[in-house]
Simulated scan of single mutants.
Amino acid sequence: MDRQPCVYILASGKHGTLYIGVTSNLLGRLQQHREGLIKGFTSRYDVVGLVHYEMADTMDAAIAREKQLKKWNRDWKVTLIERDNPDWDDLAIGLGLDPVSGRRSR
Rank of each mutant, 00 (worst) to 15 (best):
M1W: 05
R3K: 14
R3Y: 14
Q4S: 10
P5R: 00
P5G: 03
C6V: 04
C6H: 01
C6P: 07
V7C: 07
Y8I: 06
I9G: 00
I9Y: 00
A11Q: 02
S12Q: 11
S12G: 12
S12N: 12
G13E: 12
G13N: 12
K14T: 01
H15S: 02
T17A: 05
T17Q: 10
L18W: 02
L18C: 03
Y19T: 00
I20N: 00
I20E: 00
V22M: 04
V22D: 05
T23L: 06
T23H: 05
T23F: 06
S24Q: 12
N25M: 03
N25A: 10
L26K: 03
L26E: 06
L26D: 06
L26N: 06
L27S: 06
L27P: 02
L27M: 13
L27T: 03
G28N: 08
G28E: 06
G28Y: 11
R29G: 09
L30W: 05
Q31I: 10
Q31T: 13
Q32E: 15
Q32D: 14
Q32R: 12
H33Y: 14
H33V: 00
H33S: 03
H33W: 04
R34T: 04
R34C: 04
R34K: 11
G36Y: 10
L37F: 10
L37H: 15
I38H: 13
I38M: 10
I38R: 13
G40T: 11
F41E: 07
R44Q: 15
R44L: 15
Y45Q: 12
D46R: 14
V47Q: 13
V47T: 11
V47C: 13
V48Q: 15
G49A: 15
G49C: 15
L50Y: 13
L50N: 07
L50S: 09
V51D: 03
H52K: 11
Y53I: 06
Y53Q: 08
E54Y: 09
A56K: 11
D60F: 09
A61T: 07
A62D: 03
I63A: 13
R65Y: 05
E66N: 05
E66H: 06
K67R: 15
K67T: 11
Q68F: 09
Q68R: 08
Q68S: 05
L69R: 02
L69C: 01
L69G: 02
K71S: 13
K71L: 07
W72Q: 14
N73S: 08
N73T: 03
N73E: 14
R74P: 13
R74N: 03
R74K: 09
K77A: 04
T79C: 05
T79N: 13
I81R: 05
R83M: 02
R83W: 01
R83L: 07
N85F: 01
N85V: 03
N85R: 01
W88C: 01
D89S: 07
D90F: 07
D90S: 04
A92C: 05
I93K: 10
I93T: 15
I93S: 10
G94R: 08
G94W: 12
L95F: 12
P99T: 05
V100Q: 05
G102T: 04
R103I: 04
R103N: 02
R104H: 08
R104W: 09
R106P: 07
R106C: 08
R106L: 14
